[in-house]
Structures are given as structure tokens and as C-alpha cells.
């Protein structure tokens, strides 16, 4: 049962916020502000680094929750949040890990829906949180039945 995974965490994975990855991501969401895409402009700003779009952390590696495998298709992304303790910039080294925050089921017309909440954490090298982001995934009855949990 998915309930059993609540509170489980992945091991930390070191991620480096790379300029190329950020530029590609920024362009893919249509970003045109020079703080995100023009290194010279950003270097001369008060932050003195290229900024990272708020939603970029979805691309980082958070490791895997032992024993938990979800299908790559058929999942519905219901909700998403990002919470920052400071802005993320190019060059940051981030220790990332993921936690199963919650799981619940509710009855809908289409059957029983599962709602799985993950929290993704990013810490700096001193162990201070930079961000904590939440994602709610909806598992339809069909998807839930395919899982062996």
C-alpha cells in the first residue's frame, strides 16, 4: 500500500546548477529577462549571478525512494508549489532529496483516486534549506490497480 511510504526519503544527491541547463530551461519557458539569460548583465547586477527560473528545480535529481516505482505514463499532476528561502542562482551546489509527504484516497465518479504528495528539498553545502517544493500526483483507479502496492 502506498500509505506505507509516507515519511520515506531518498538519499541525498548533489546537483550543480549549470548555466547551460538553466539557459535552455529559461528559453523553453519563453524567458527573455537578461537576469536569466544574459551572463554579463547578471554579473553586473546586485545578485552578480544568473538567476534560475522559479520552476527550474523540477529538472534536478532527487534520488529515488527505495521500493517506490510509479508508471511513467497515466499520472496526473494535480498541484505544484515552490518555496524559496533565498533565490537559486547559477553555480549553486544543491543537495537534493525527496520525501513522500502524504498519501490519501478519495472516491470520485471514475473510481477511487489516489493523491500522492512528494516534497523535494534542496539544501546548500552547509545544510541550510534553499527550497522545499511540493508536487501532488493523482493516480486514477486504472493506474492504482496496475501498481503492485
Amino acid at each position: 500500500m502506498l500509505y506505507e511510504f509516507i515519511g520515506n526519503r531518498s538519499s541525498k544527491v548533489t546537483n550543480v546548477i549549470e548555466k547551460g541547463a538553466v539557459l535552455k530551461f529559461a528559453k523553453a519557458i519563453g524567458e527573455t529577462h537578461p537576469m536569466y539569460i544574459d551572463e554579463n548583465y547578471a554579473k553586473n547586477s546586485s545578485i552578480s549571478n544568473l538567476l534560475v527560473p522559479a520552476t527550474f528545480p523540477v529538472t534536478l535529481d532527487y534520488g529515488t525512494i527505495p521500493g517506490l516505482t510509479l508508471p511513467s505514463v497515466g499520472l496526473i499532476h494535480g498541484e505544484q508549489s515552490f518555496h524559496y528561502h533565498r533565490p537559486l542562482v547559477v553555480g549553486d551546489v544543491v543537495e537534493c532529496y525527496r520525501e513522500v509527504k502524504d498519501y490519501m484516497e478519495k472516491e470520485a465518479k471514475s473510481g477511487t483516486l489516489g493523491m500522492l504528495t512528494f516534497t523535494d528539498y534542496g539544501e546548500d553545502e552547509q545544510g541550510e534549506l534553499i527550497f522545499e517544493n511540493e508536487r501532488v500526483i493523482i493516480l486514477t483507479e486504472t493506474v492504482r490497480k496496475e501498481l503492485s502496492y
Binding site: I29, G30, E31, T32, H33, M35, Y36, S45, S46, I47, L51, P53, A54, T55, I76, H77, G78, E79, Q80, S81, F82, H83, Y84, R86, P87, E134
Partner: peptide, 20 residues
């Protein structure tokens, strides 16, 4: 999130949450 890009030197997005 680009709604706030032109203001991004005034501060930063501290919290951003949505429902799809």
C-alpha cells in the same frame, strides 16, 4: 512565472503554488 520577470531585480519569488 514570467509575469514577475520584469520585476525580478526588486526581489524574488518566495512562494509559488498552483493547482492545474
Amino acid at each position: 512565472s514570467r509575469l514577475f520577470s520584469q520585476h525580478i531585480e526588486e526581489g524574488y519569488i518566495e512562494d509559488y503554488r498552483v493547482r492545474f
